[in-house]
Amino acid sequence: ESETFDVELTKNVQGLGITIAGYIGDKKLEPSGIFVKSITKSSAVEHDGRIQIGDQIIAVDGTNLQGFTNQQAVEVLRHTGQTVLLTLMRRG
């Protein structure tokens, strides 16, 4: 069981404050995608409180990250504006 949710964030001096990890899993058993690996102290993400380590980032400002490499996803996140809309999925 999984839930998908949107989080809109405004960057602070730390930026968004997440590091991400790309993961290619076994299609049947484990998900592939871009996941939140860590959250920086005092960052926008930590202050917001809704995003957790292990959440999958589905889209950034409407750009679907399906099939993106870790590096491609980093580039998408790097080129966002001051306000960012993240679409995430959390597995229950």
Rank of each mutant, 00 (worst) to 15 (best):
G81F: 01
N70W: 12
A59T: 05
G67D: 07
E8S: 12
K11T: 07
T83N: 11
K37E: 14
Q14L: 10
Y23D: 15
V74C: 13
L65S: 03
I39Y: 05
T87K: 14
I34A: 04
D61T: 02
T4V: 11
S43W: 04
Y23C: 12
K37Q: 13
T87P: 03
T87V: 05
Q14I: 09
H47V: 15
E3R: 10
G22D: 15
G54D: 07
F68Y: 13
E46D: 13
T40H: 13
K27E: 12
V7W: 03
L85I: 11
V7A: 06
G67W: 07
Q71R: 12
L88K: 00
M89G: 09
I53N: 04
R90F: 01
T10I: 09
G33H: 09
V36N: 08
R50V: 06
Q82E: 13
D48E: 08
L16C: 03
V36R: 01
R78K: 13
L86I: 07
I57H: 01
V76C: 14
R78C: 06
G54S: 02
T4W: 06
V84R: 00
L77H: 02
I53F: 02
E1Y: 15
F5A: 05
G25V: 09
L88M: 14
A73G: 05
D55A: 03
V84G: 03
K11R: 11
Q52C: 08
E1T: 12
N70A: 14
Q72N: 07
I39Q: 00
E75Q: 11
A21L: 05
A73M: 06
G25R: 10
F5Y: 10
D55H: 00
K37C: 06
Y23W: 10
I53W: 00
Y23Q: 15
E46S: 11
Q66N: 09
K27M: 08
Q56I: 06
E75I: 01
L29P: 15
D6Q: 11
R91S: 10
I57D: 03
V76R: 13
V60P: 00
I24R: 14
I20S: 04
Q56N: 03
F68P: 05
S38P: 00
Q71H: 09
E8P: 07
L77I: 10
V45I: 08
S43N: 06
I24L: 13
S2Q: 10
Q66H: 11
L9M: 06
T40F: 08
Q56P: 01
K37N: 08
A59E: 07
G22C: 14
V84Q: 04
V74S: 13
V76W: 05
L86E: 01
E46V: 05
G67Y: 05
T80L: 00
Q82K: 13
S32N: 06
I39C: 02
R50K: 09
I20D: 05
G22W: 12
I53E: 10
G92V: 14
R90D: 00
G67P: 05
E3C: 14
G33D: 13
N12D: 13
L29I: 13
G49E: 06
G62Q: 07
I58C: 06
A73F: 07
L9Q: 05
D26C: 12
S2V: 10
T87N: 03
Q66W: 07
V76F: 12
V13T: 15
G15Q: 08
Y23I: 11
Q14A: 12
S2R: 10
D61S: 02
V76S: 08
Q71S: 11
G33T: 04
H79D: 15
I51L: 06
A44Q: 09
R50E: 05
G49P: 05
L29V: 12
T83Y: 04
G54F: 01
L85H: 14
A44E: 10
T10R: 14
V36S: 03
I34P: 05
A73V: 09
E1I: 13
S42W: 12
V13K: 15
E8F: 09
